[in-house]
Simulated assay, not measured.
Amino acid sequence: MSLQLLEKKGENRTSNQKTTNSLAYEEYEITANHLRERTKHRPRVAIICGSGLGGLANTLDEADVLEYESIPNFPVSTVFGHAGRLVFGLIGAVPVVCMQGRFHSYEGYPLWKITFPIRIFKLLGVDTLIVTNAAGGLNPSYAVGDIMLIKDHINFAGFAGVNPLCGVNDERWGPRFPPMSNAYDKKLRKIAKEVAEEQGYGDYFKEGVYAMVGGPNFETSAEARMLRAVGSDAVGMSTVSEVIVARHCGMHVLGMSLISNLVVQDEHSDETANHHEVLAIGLQRAKDLQNLVSGIVDKITA
């Protein structure tokens, strides 16, 4: 095969990777400009609301609400309990943007599409990302309704090469090999602990490791025991890809999980996990989490 043909094949492969693994940088700019034209707010903090936790966005002052389906290039959430709206507004005097509903690989979206909003937030000027989720508790000391501050994660999909940064790297977003050893910002975690203590949440405020699995099925008992054995305190089907892209973009990240169910680790148990239970616990603890996030935002932007 001639050198010219080999070079041509390489060019085609690179072009295909750009098409397959992401949109062009300019497409992200189109979406960001669309949003700038529809809100006066210029957010410093972005908040992703997990299952049952979208009520936080309803508390924003001077809110501008945009349906996902009205935003160019934006995916649409298909999960019950995720409203599918982008809400710009104020927490106190701090401009923020909230995602009422996120996206998951089990909905059929590729990871670059799931994390598309993160890069939009970067273009809008966001420097801090707060991610929340509903998760199953693996640590035997956890109870339903606990809030777990995420100190680290285990990306099981990443072990198989499923990563939102796969493909051609655009240096305008970040480096080819970003470190993840401090994925969850130590200073932000310290602030979160202080706020939790001040608000009287110390009894059910934990800190642990979040494991991401693909879903949409809940884990088998054997899988749950394996997750616990390797150091996972809670397990869910989201968050990690968003965190990876945020860190790639240079954002500071804080993550919290609401323990919405206890994962069954015994095959002889008659207990089962279900999504309605997740949403119910989210509603019960929603006010506490809203107060916690609001207090954190006040402190990190002071």
Results as ranks from 00 to 15, higher is better:
Tyr106Val: 00
Val253Met: 05
Met256Pro: 07
Ile259Met: 14
Gly92Thr: 01
Ser105Gly: 11
Gln100Trp: 14
Gly167Gln: 09
Glu7Ser: 07
Ser181Asn: 13
Glu11Cys: 03
Val235His: 01
Met237Val: 04
Lys18Pro: 06
Glu277Trp: 10
Ala135Met: 07
Gly137Cys: 07
Arg13Ser: 13
Asp233Pro: 07
Arg44Gly: 15
Val131Asn: 04
Asp61Ser: 13
Ser181Tyr: 09
Leu227Arg: 12
Ala183Tyr: 01
Lys287Asn: 14
Lys18Gln: 13
His252Gly: 14
Gln290Gly: 01
Gly214Tyr: 11
Gln100His: 11
Trp173Tyr: 03
Val253Ser: 01
Ser22Val: 00
Glu107Ile: 01
Pro95Phe: 00
Asp203Cys: 06
Ile296Leu: 10
Ser105Trp: 07
Arg189Ala: 08
Ala222Pro: 04
Leu86Trp: 10
Gly84Met: 07
Thr132Leu: 12
Asn163Asp: 15
Glu219Ala: 05
Phe159Gln: 08
Val162Ile: 14
Asn73Cys: 00
Gly92Ala: 02
Leu66Gly: 04
Met237His: 11
Phe74Trp: 09
Pro216Lys: 02
Gly125Trp: 08
Leu3Asp: 14
Val195Met: 06
Thr59Lys: 13
His248Lys: 03
Glu277Thr: 12
Tyr109His: 02
Pro175Lys: 06
Pro179Phe: 06
Phe177Asp: 04
Pro110His: 05
Tyr142Asp: 09
Lys186Ile: 12
Ala196Ile: 05
Asn16Glu: 11
Leu3Glu: 15
Thr78Arg: 09
Phe177Ala: 02
Ile150Tyr: 04
Trp112Phe: 15
Gly200Tyr: 13
Arg119Gln: 14
Ala224Ile: 07
Ala157Thr: 12
Tyr184Asp: 05
Pro95Trp: 00
Gln100Arg: 14
Cys98Arg: 04
Pro175Gly: 00
Gln284Leu: 10
